[in-house]
Structure formats: structure tokens, C-alpha cells
């Protein structure tokens, strides 16, 4: 039962969503013969949305548990882990206060709140920290890749075979064709080569990849919806 019930739930939910897909989408669902499938579809989507959010929030517990363990055992980088937890719970505290203040005015009238980006003050402090700390951190983390890709270009990209030569040539054509000076440098040919490569060769390759991947999605989806695929239930 502990195994059959989840499979039954998966099949029922999958069939519910699939049925709604095939019922007519035009018109008022109240007047449609299978209009109720729209309600089933909408409700199931709302359920998935809630579970998705709960599952995400559960992820914190792991992070906190591991960090606390490192701190208590004075493990490697423990002071940084402590900073991380302080930042985590500090920001959570500020955010929860702001959310509840905005929705329910727990801390007095919302009009007394500080002026924020939307002139309401509803997420003022949260957004300030977001723009001044989170934005530079995330954006810079990803911009580091520019340096590593440059280093890889020098150390690893080799024209050893026909295929790798074509890959590097296509990459160079795109790099030149996408920038204003590159076209001038190649007497106008980089732009044309880019257009040809992207539309006809890349277009063909991408379409083949998409069709292949979608066939995979269809096969896996059918296996799950029909209850054949059960690997997601294993521990």
C-alpha cells in the first residue's frame, strides 16, 4: 500500500492534467461538457505549486544542520559558516516582518512604513539589501566565467580533428559577427556568415536536438502517467 498509493496518486494526477489538456479551451468552463476538468487541472497545479514551495523551504534545514555541525565542531571555515547563518536568519527576520507588515499591518499602519522603491515601503529593506549585496554577489560570481572561458580558450580549445576545427571556426564566426567591429574587420562577411550559420546550420541542429529531446519527454511522461516508471519512489 505504501508503494501502490503514491503510484495511484501519480496516475490520477497525470490523467487529470492530460484530460484537461484535451478538453476544449475556448469558452466559459461552466458551459463546457468537460468544464470540470479545468477545475481539476487548476487545483492540481495549485497543489504542485504549494508542494514545490514547501520542498524548497525544506532545503534550508539541510544547510542549517550542516553549518551548525561545522560550527560546533570548530571545523574548516566555521567563522564563515557562522556569518552565513547570521545573514540568513537576519534577512529572514527582516523579510518576514516586512511581508506580514504589508499584508496584515502587524507593526502599526502600513502608511508609517519607510518609503521604498514602489513608494509603499512594503519591501524597502529587503530590496535595499538585495540590490546592494545580493545583486553584486550573484552578478560577479557569474562574470568570473569570462576569465575562465578565456583561460580555457588558450589552454584547451584545440583544432585536433575536422569536428573540433568546425566547432572553433563556427565559434569565431559568431564572435566576430555579433560585434560591430568584427564585421568591418572581415569586410562584411562575418555578419553574413553569422546569419547563414545561425539560420540554416544552427537552425537544423537545434531543431534536431529539440525533436529528439521532446520524443524523450513524451516517452518518459507516458511512462510516469501510466504508472510504469517508478524510480522516483526509490529512496
Amino acid at each position: 500500500m505504501k508503494r501502490e498509493l503514491p503510484i495511484l496518486l501519480t496516475v490520477l494526477c497525470g490523467l487529470g492534467i492530460t484530460m484537461a489538456f484535451f478538453s476544449s479551451s475556448a469558452g466559459d468552463p461552466d458551459d463546457l461538457p468537460l468544464g470540470w476538468t479545468k477545475a481539476v487541472n487548476s487545483e492540481l497545479l495549485a497543489w504542485a505549486l504549494v508542494f514545490f514551495s514547501v520542498a524548497f523551504i525544506l532545503g534550508i534545514s539541510n544547510l542549517v544542520r550542516i553549518s551548525l555541525k561545522t560550527i560546533s565542531s570548530r571545523g574548516e571555515d566555521w567563522p564563515y559558516k557562522a556569518v552565513m547563518l547570521i545573514v540568513l536568519f537576519g534577512y529572514l527576520g527582516i523579510g518576514l516582518m516586512e511581508i506580514h507588515q504589508q499584508r496584515y499591518g502587524f507593526f502599526g499602519s502600513t502608511e508609517d512604513a519607510v518609503v521604498g522603491i514602489a513608494g509603499q515601503g512594503e519591501r524597502a529593506m529587503r530590496d535595499w539589501v538585495y540590490f546592494k549585496v545580493f545583486v553584486p554577489l550573484q552578478a560577479t560570481m557569474f562574470s568570473l566565467l569570462a576569465f575562465f572561458i578565456a583561460s580555457a580558450a588558450f589552454r584547451a580549445f584545440r583544432a585536433r580533428s575536422l569536428e573540433s576545427t568546425l566547432l572553433l571556426t563556427a565559434g569565431a564566426v559568431i564572435m566576430l559577427g555579433q560585434v560591430p567591429g568584427g564585421d568591418e574587420l572581415t569586410f562584411g562577411y562575418a555578419g553574413r556568415a553569422l546569419a547563414f550559420t545561425m539560420t540554416y546550420i544552427n537552425g537544423a541542429g537545434q531543431k534536431a536536438i529539440i525533436i529528439g529531446a521532446t520524443l524523450g519527454v513524451l516517452a518518459t511522461g507516458l511512462r510516469i502517467v501510466l504508472g510504469i516508471e517508478r524510480s522516483y519512489l526509490s529512496e
Binding site: A150, A153, A156, F157, R158, G171, A172, M175
Partner: peptide
């Protein structure tokens, strides 16, 4: 610069 790196590396 990137293209130069690829050429020099090769």
C-alpha cells in the same frame, strides 16, 4: 582577444 587566445594556444 578570445580569438587571439585560441589561435596562439593552437
Amino acid at each position: 582577444f578570445m580569438i587571439l587566445l585560441i589561435i596562439v594556444g593552437n
